[in-house]
Design a protein around this nucleic acid. Structure first.
Lengths: 346, 346
DNA sequence: CTGAAAGCGCTAACAA
DNA sequence: TTGTTAGCGCTTTCAG
């Protein structure tokens, strides 16, 4: 038979009933005190608080959630945390959420089992989900949207799904990158593409190709690498590229992580950047502007986007039927030191 | 009056009762099917499954949690996600947790409001907490440990609190760093210390000082910077250091993030590394071994530690009264290119 | 193999 | 101001 002391020892064993009994009040009074209900007499509150402390009572948010059918958990779905780009996102998102009394539930879905993860989140009855990861062909996003589950897509959208979306202007950003390289005289340009399943990567690729096409240049299929946003893939890919007789003079990377991989590959192959090879990225993560790196890249206002996504979600949670909004943030060229004139040109 | 179609439209509006009614069975039968209870007749199960699909029923984990008083949420408390070191941790931890059917609830507590955060987690009745952040003077950790709440401290411990702990060998690692610099002939050595409130940082500082003391060298207070693990603080601090007449010939940073800041500061100040300044870090995060960086540092087996922490936590959840374990992982010198002989020496 | 019934710990009317 | 009561949606005996 457990003594009072025993109960005291285990969190979750003390309920509001225990507190009520000890304080000589009803359980609802305890509930009121816990929730800061003003219409509780000062001395009653006093007694209750005392017992809460004494017994080490911690309210059970699960039970509360069951009855209120509200939750302060917001899930943030990310494909691979290891990408520093997401990191900067997470930092802001977590911060903004907690400002609104919400907690961030991070789901690092490894691309694959996304469906299962999402299922778990929905079962958890999270207040909403911020997707930074929605694969284009994933049906789950559409289903959730149709069910009016609060969700916002960050940094990518899903064709034919009507929901809140926050993105950077990938197409235009990619065009800026292309024009920059073109202006420097580059013609033999390799592209390290992200995973084709996300709108962001497709748009970046498309925008780049379009800009090249405008001046009558086609993309050499041999120069198109699918690195799927992975550092290692990009590193070995670029290394291989640099080993060829007819190597490119410039490489456009669909994101900074792979651009950094390209830089490292060039260093490994002793290919001087930017004199022998120009490298341009996309995202402008913090590392890129380090004095040691100075990566030329397409800047996207990460913090603003993260902030906007939280705001959209909060709005959506309050007004499930509000008209979906689509925010597109401008992309700009951050010209730094990894791009230069094509070799043999002036 | 909501029609069946309306209900269908909102997740969480369909309960196991609805499914039961439509399938012509009892609610408990639905529960059994959902939980894969084997003793349900094939055709009954069939009917139930059909209705689950048709109605778009999603079991409510909150209600389940209330009755089972179990949860598959494990909180991971982190001081600042923005530190890439944590990133690598998180990646492994998230992965390992999900292998065990657990979800990672990431809490990015900004050092300050840790108490409040933890409180929320406990109210959420998470299955356990992995702390990578426990401030030494934080009483909450001790309280939780006493209450036998499943928790493991990673990368730092708390004096006088008995619970599972996973750390690297900070003292010895710091000693290795000191010996390395000493061997290279450095005597004027600056130290960028982390926040003094964590055991890890204190041990690293202590270990370094001890090693210097062994050869009769004291740490110049002017050369001791408190960067609190923050990039910006370290950057400006080192910049300042390098501007002095009597600048150090080497700098030991309590973690790689600040070491990278030091490297960047040196680059900014046009101080050649390692010819004019040697830099050594601690942690050996992925970036440090990039060809572009090649930071000499103290390697700590991050992945193994992350993995171990999940294992300890899982064990603790199953056996709350098991004897606490303390795992110390060896630290080794990763000698790369940011350290060299002291100027004026050979 | 299936159903009835008793809660899990809490909130939120409704009474008093 | 306080107490009583009825659930929230589910799991889990206990009968049948």
């Amino acid at each position: 038979m457990p003594s009072a002391r025993d109960r005291n020892e285990r969190i979750g064993r003390v309920t509001s009933w225990d507190v009520a009994r000890e304080a000589g009040v009803s359980q609802s009074t305890v509930s009121r005190v816990v929730n800061g209900d003003s219409r509780v007499a000062g001395n009653t509150r006093q007694r209750v608080v005392e017992q809460i402390e004494r017994l080490g009572y911690t309210p059970n948010a699960v039970a509360r959630g069951l009855v209120t059918s509200r939750s302060d958990l917001v899930a943030v779905a990310v494909t691979n945390v290891i990408n520093p780009f997401y990191l900067e996102f997470l930092d802001v998102i977590g911060d903004r959420l907690s400002q609104r009394g919400l907690q961030m539930l991070l789901s690092n879905t490894g691309t694959q089992r996304a469906e299962t993860y999402i299922q778990t989140l929905v079962e958890q009855r999270v207040a909403g989900i911020i997707f930074t990861t929605a694969s284009l062909r994933s049906p789950v996003v559409g289903r959730l949207a149709r069910q009016r589950f609060p969700l916002v897509l960050v940094n990518r959208y899903v064709e034919g799904v009507s929901c809140d979306v926050v993105t950077g202007d990938s197409r235009h950003g990619a065009r800026l990158a292309a024009e920059h390289l073109l202006e420097l005289g580059h013609r033999r340009i390799a592209v390290i593409a992200g995973t084709p399943e996300t709108s962001t990567n497709r748009d970046r690729l498309q925008g780049f190709e379009d800009a090249l096409a405008d001046v009558g240049i086609g993309l050499d299929p041999d120069f198109l690498l699918a690195a799927d946003n992975l550092y290692d893939r990009a590193f070995t890919g670029v290394l291989d590229l640099l080993g060829r007789r007819d190597r490119p003079t410039a490489v456009f990377c669909a994101n900074d992580l792979t651009a950094l991989a390209a830089l490292n590959a060039a260093r490994t192959a002793r290919v001087d950047v930017p004199r022998r090879l120009s490298v341009i990225g996309f995202d402008d993560i913090a590392i890129s502007s380090w004095p040691l790196i100075q990566l030329t890249t397409i800047h996207v206002p990460t913090a603003e986007m993260a902030q906007a996504s939280v705001e959209l979600l909060a709005r959506r949670i309050e007004h499930p039927r509000a008209r979906p909004r689509r925010l597109v943030f401008p992309a700009t060229l951050a010209r730094r030191e990894t791009t230069g004139p094509a070799p043999g040109r002036r």
